[in-house]
């Protein structure tokens, strides 16, 4: 599962995930997500190109979110499709990591 990062103004890091966040996808991004969680304080997780999210994928989002918030940072989710958003909302992850569909709103939430 491809993962890439983009540095935005204001010290914000956008993490772009692509593909399926199933057990295989989660395993592929876990280490990189943990490194990001240990070093960044303002993170946008871009899920626009994520086609599937299961509970293994949820773990790969929640553990880094906890680490970032634990260090006083902020994290938001950007652009999930309808079904991925339903998984996030059904599990309650959206109450821990806010969801935004406009990039400007996601950036504003981190400032």
């Amino acid at each position: 599962m491809p993962i890439s990062t983009e540095e935005l103004e204001g010290g914000i890091t956008k993490v772009i995930l692509e593909g399926r966040m199933d057990i295989e996808g989660a395993a592929a991004v876990d280490m990189r997500m943990n490194v990001i969680a240990g070093t960044k304080k303002a993170v946008i997780v871009d899920l626009q190109k994520v086609s599937f999210l299961g509970s293994m994928g949820l773990r790969a989002l929640v553990a880094p979110a906890r680490a970032i918030k634990g260090r006083g940072g902020k994290i938001v989710i950007f652009g999930p499709n309808e079904l991925v958003e339903k998984v996030l909302k059904t599990s309650g992850v959206d109450t821990m990591i806010p969801i935004h569909h406009e990039l400007q709103n996601a950036i504003a939430a981190l400032q």
């Binding site: 509970s55 949820l58 773990r59 929640v62 553990a63 979110a65 906890r66 918030k69 634990g70 339903k86 998984v87 059904t90 599990s91 309650g92 992850v93 109450t95 821990m96």
Partner: peptide
């Protein structure tokens, strides 16, 4: 299980039954 409501709760596995029932 109730939906996750804080970063202290990481029992994602416990959300599986909820996901199963909703989908």
């Amino acid at each position: 299980l109730p939906p996750l409501n804080s970063l202290e709760e990481l029992a994602i596995g416990g959300q599986g039954v909820r996901l199963l029932r909703r989908f």
